[in-house]
Design a protein around this nucleic acid. Structure first.
Lengths: 193, 193
DNA sequence: GTCTATAGCTAGATAGAC
DNA sequence: GTCTATCTAGCTATAGAC
């Protein structure tokens, strides 16, 4: 029935997103999805004929997540530092635990093997995120909460890059490394110049 | 003959390292290696019976590279900033071009699927690299070239993380993003406090 | 050291019954 | 929408000839 179709599709996307963050796009299979959902591979193929189709749906799901989170942040009546904290502890992680990295980092790592259709989507998602963080930093610098030299965009690149890599490292070295990196980053942006 | 054995083994490791940096450990096969070297899969298995054995050899090769590069840097009579530049443009890249990321980042991304034997090796390699960069930053702060708040180790984490992520991003967004991130990072370390 | 041949498995994907 | 059955292709790995 139509109702279950949507639910099932959503279940598949949710699980695939989790496997993307823990194992990478090329390192989970329709078999993995089928087993964990209690259905067969053929059923997954019914919803997403090719894995590439699933990949595109994953990008769309991330896009939706971004849009929800970014507009929540814009509506949130807090300081730039608080918003940045919410980004670091929430948005960036996509409901993540210690074993999950950012789904965009995961896709970047597999870029050479990724289906062609996913690459422009990935680039757009990265750009969208950078734009959002740049907006945050701009606000913070304007009202004096943050201080850093140079271009806002360049600093946004630095912040986003650090967050992503910190998630990747913390999977190998423990979450203290994530906290250490975030604390140092913050110190640089309130102490500099 | 013994002489060719060593050469062949080295050829395999060199090529595997390149594929590790471009595609990831789980995304190249003995078939890929065999094809590009003009031999058969069975021959690769002669040198590295299991893929895990090849993986361990890759870690060892990276370790050797680190040791060579780090001691060259220590012997180099330049400023801390110059040494940092050499790290960013040379050591970090492992002979890399625009399509290659750091081999350690690549292994981190695949951590969940990696053979058990490679994980402690990966952690040790990361730590070794962090130690080296911390040493550089310490020297730079001591002689007044660099200035940054907080712990040297924490700043080293920040620098290394940024470099690694910048390589990953630049594969998707072009090398200008790498340059932009490095420039901003440097600005923060000479301008702050 | 390199080869042919092959085992055993898993991947993505499709056809067709229900 | 989900199933069984099946296909093709790729993977890691091994045995044994040369």
């Amino acid at each position: 029935m139509q109702v279950r179709l949507k639910n099932r599709k959503q279940q598949i996307v949710d699980l695939a997103l989790e496997l993307l963050q823990t194992r990478g796009f090329e390192n989970f299979s329709y078999q993995d999805l089928a087993r964990q959902l209690g259905i067969t591979k053929a059923s997954i193929h019914h919803h997403f004929p090719k894995k590439e189709d699933l990949g595109v749906a994953l990008c769309q799901a991330i896009q939706d997540w971004h849009e929800r989170e970014f507009s929540k942040s814009r509506a949130f009546a807090g300081s730039a530092l608080e918003k940045l904290d919410r980004y670091v502890r929430g948005t960036l992680r996509y409901g993540g635990c210690e074993k999950k990295i950012c789904p965009l980092s995961s896709l970047q790592a597999d870029i050479a093997s990724l289906p062609e259709a996913m690459r422009p989507a990935l680039k757009r998602l990265d750009d969208h995120e950078l734009e959002f963080v740049a907006e945050l930093l701009q606000q913070g610098r304007d009202n004096g909460e943050l201080s850093f030299p140079g271009d806002v965009r360049a600093q946004a690149v630095l912040v986003v890059l650090t967050c992503k890599a910190a998630l990747q490292y913390s999977r190998v070295h423990g979450s203290e490394m994530f906290d250490e990196a975030m604390a140092q980053m913050k110190q640089l942006m309130v102490a500099s110049q």
